[in-house]
Write a protein that binds this DNA or RNA. Structure first.
Lengths: 214, 214
DNA sequence: GGCTGGATTAACAGAATTGTTAAACAAAAA
DNA sequence: TTTTTGTTTAACAATTCTGTTAATCCAGCC
C-alpha cells in the first residue's frame, strides 16, 4: 500500500491542527485543552501549533469565531413568517432543535467560554445575544398579536421563548452527559431519544398556547 | 480593637479550608481549582491544605460527597402522595425548583464532574441516579394511573419528568450564566425572575396535562 | 548537483502546579 | 521553666504547560 506522505506541505497541517483544536476546545474548553493535546490529535509536534497560530489564544479565537458564525447563521432563517402563526413557530422550534442536535457540544462550549473566558464575552454578546434580540423582538411581536386576538392563550412571550430554548438546550446537554455515564450510548441509539423529545417539546408548547381553547 | 487571632487552632483552619474548597470546586470544577487558590481564599498556605486533607483529590471527594448528600436529602420527600394528584405534582415541582434556586451551582458542578472526573461517576450513580430511579418509578406510576383513568391527557411519564427536570435546571443555569455576562445582576434582582419562571413552568406542565380537558 | 526557503523537530526556558519536608512557632502540659 | 504536641511556614522537588529557537529536513528551482 502506498503510504500517506509523512511530510505534508501547505495547508494540510494547518487544517489538521485547526480540526483537532476545534474538537478539543468544544470538548474541554480553553483551559483544559493543552496545545500538546491538540498537536497530538493532529499528529504533529506542539511547536507546529505555535508556528501556524502563534499562540493558544489565537487558535482558540478562531475556533470560537467559527462556532459563533455557525450559530449566527442558524439564527437568521428563524425570522420568516410565511405561514400561519403556529406553523411558523413549530418550524422555528424544529429548526432550533435540529441545529442543536447537529452541534450538541455548542451549548456546553458557550457555557464554558462565558464562565472561564470572560474576556471574550464581548464577541458572544455582539454576535449572538444582540442578533438574538431582534429575533426575540420579532417573536414577541407575533406572539403578542396572536394572544391579543385571542387565538392563543395569554402568555408572556419572553417566558415562552425561554421555555422553547431551554427545553431544546437541556435535551442535547443531557444526552451528552448521559453518553459519559453510559458508554454504550452510541449515535444511532440516541436518534430515537432526540426524535421523541422533539415531539414532546412541540406538544408541550402547543398545549401551553392552545390547551384551553381547541 | 482587639485583632483576630492570626494563629488559629484546632478546627478553625480546617473548616476555613473546607469552606473555601467547596466554593472554588463548585465554581470551577476539579481541574481548574488549584490548591493554592483554595488556600489563598482560606487565608493560609497551600501546605495547610495538604496537612489537613493530604491531597487535592481527598478534599474534592469530601466536597463532592457533601453536595451529593444535600441533593440526596432533597430527593427524599418528593415521594409522598398525601394529596390529590395535581397538588402532589405541583408540590414536587416547587420543591425541586426551590432546591435548585438555593443551590444554583449544583447542576453545573455535576455536569463538570461527570465530564472531567469520570472516575467518580460511580458515586453519583449510586447516590443520585439509582435513588432517582425509585422516585421516577413512583411518579411514573401515579402519572400512568391518572392518564389511564382519563383525568389527564395521555402522556409519556418519562418525558413529563424530563420536562420538569430540565426546565428547572436550565432556569438556574441560565441565571448563573447571565450573572457572568451582566455583572449588574445581583441576588435580589433575580428573585423576581425565578418567581415568574417557576410560575411559568408549573403552568406549562399543567397545560400539558389538563389543557384539552378542563 | 547544489541552493533556497518554507515546514518540521528536538531541546530548552520560564511559569505554574501538586505534594513533601525540615524548621519555626505557639500553646498547653510537665 | 522546660517539654511536648500539634500547627504553620518557607523552601524545595517533580511534573506539566506554553512559547521560543536553533538545527534539520525536503521540495522545487537554478
Amino acid at each position: 500500500m502506498e503510504r500517506q506522505q509523512n511530510r505534508r506541505k501547505h495547508g494540510n497541517t494547518e487544517q489538521a491542527i485547526m480540526n483537532a483544536a476545534e474538537e478539543m476546545f468544544l470538548e474541554k474548553g480553553y483551559k483544559l485543552t493543552t496545545t500538546t493535546m491538540i498537536a497530538e490529535k493532529a499528529g504533529v509536534t506542539h511547536a507546529m501549533l505555535h508556528y501556524y497560530f502563534r499562540t493558544k489564544e489565537q487558535i482558540f479565537l478562531k475556533v470560537l469565531d467559527k462556532a459563533l458564525a455557525e450559530l449566527q447563521a442558524a439564527l437568521q432563517p428563524v425570522m420568516k413568517k410565511d405561514a400561519p402563526f403556529w406553523e411558523t413557530l413549530e418550524k422555528g422550534i424544529t429548526a432550533h432543535f435540529d441545529f442543536l442536535a447537529k452541534y450538541p457540544r455548542l451549548p456546553q462550549f458557550l457555557f464554558d467560554t462565558i464562565r472561564f473566558n470572560p474576556e471574550v464575552t464581548g464577541r458572544i454578546q455582539e454576535r449572538i445575544i444582540d442578533p438574538s434580540r431582534r429575533i426575540i423582538a420579532f417573536h414577541r411581536r407575533i406572539i403578542q398579536e396572536e394572544a391579543d386576538s385571542g387565538r392563543i392563550r395569554q402568555v408572556d412571550p419572553d417566558q415562552l421563548l425561554m421555555d422553547i430554548g431551554s427545553l431544546s438546550v437541556s435535551t442535547v446537554m443531557l444526552l451528552q452527559t448521559a453518553r459519559k455515564m453510559i458508554p454504550g450510548l452510541g449515535g444511532g441509539m440516541s436518534d430515537g431519544f432526540l426524535e421523541s423529545r422533539k415531539k414532546e417539546i412541540i406538544e408541550l408548547i402547543r398545549s401551553r398556547l392552545y390547551g384551553n381553547l381547541q
